[in-house]
Amino acid sequence: MGRITTRRTVVRVTVDHEPRRRQDTLAVEEPLEIRVSGEPLAVTMRTPGQDVELAAGFLVSEGIVARGEHFHTAIHCGGPGTGGGENTYNVLDIALAPGIAPPPPEAARAFYTTSSCGLCGKRSIEAVRTVSAYDVAADTTRVTPALLATLPETLRDHQAVFDKTGGLHAAGLFEAATGELLVLREDVGRHNAVDKVVGWALLNNDLPLTGTVLQVSGRASFELAQKAVMAGIPVLTAVSAASSLAVDLAEEAGLTLVGFLRGESMNIYAHPERVDGAASPA
């Protein structure tokens, strides 16, 4: 799998057995600098692969683009400060379509984005409450609890790199009506995995993502709820907990937010009316 995984020597220790050296497969984590028209915008720690999708999804999340025709080209270039030097494939320069305004200088992240934080570098909480181009609250999508209950296992069954490393998050986009898996992406950063899914949709001119469910392998944080809203996704489901700020945003934006989706049970934190039988609980 190229730079997606790598091999390292580890010492395997088991109680009451002799330690031994062995080769272990690790998920690769490397920085990606995203530039727009040559100007640095952000640096994120990510698993290499689908870099163009990652950058495209990031631009959607930032409110810079909203449709496929807004995104023109992307090219890997040399590292920071290089003048045509060796291509590290860790710098991606994006050209927006003619007439699309570049991000303002204040949009540049104050410091790099770690693989666990998709909002680091923002100057204030108001800055991340980006106005979406899509009205998620108007989406009339409905889903059944039985269909939602199948999504975590389907997601897990398709995590090919996780099977080798045990170290990647995943995000999968599903048809709400049928449960069909449309696309799945893995990354060391949960927000990167979502950006890759959204970027895939942007590059295929599929935004807004009405009638879909975004399933994630970890918790439902504010940043993931924000990315779902920016892409026009009406339902976000997670196998772990939701944060208070994610619930606040979901309530405000009209996003159905589901957490602790395990087996046949789940917690619906916001807008249960999209889930059959959940609108009027006892």
Rank of each mutant, 00 (worst) to 15 (best):
W200S: 08
H169C: 11
G121P: 01
F111H: 10
E186N: 01
F111G: 08
T165Q: 08
A138K: 10
A228H: 06
L203R: 05
Q215S: 02
V183N: 05
K164W: 04
L151C: 11
E180D: 15
T141Q: 09
T140D: 15
A137M: 02
H191S: 12
P208L: 07
R156I: 07
P104F: 06
W200K: 00
A177V: 08
C120R: 14
R219C: 00
L203G: 07
V216Q: 04
A177G: 10
A225G: 02
T144W: 14
R190I: 10
P104A: 14
L173F: 04
T165D: 02
L151N: 12
A138V: 13
L147K: 05
P152C: 11
H158L: 09
L173H: 03
A107W: 08
G167E: 14
Y134N: 04
T113E: 12
A146H: 09
L181A: 06
A127N: 10
E153G: 07
V136W: 06
T150V: 03
P152L: 08
V136F: 04
T141V: 15
P105T: 11
D187N: 11
Q226S: 08
L182W: 09
A137R: 13
A220K: 09
T154L: 12
L209W: 05
V216A: 01
E180A: 14
R190D: 13
T141C: 13
T113S: 13
A171E: 05
F111W: 12
D187T: 00
V194C: 02
Q215F: 02
F174A: 11
L147S: 12
T165S: 03
D163K: 15
G189F: 00
H169I: 05
S116R: 12
V161A: 05
G211K: 10
T150R: 15
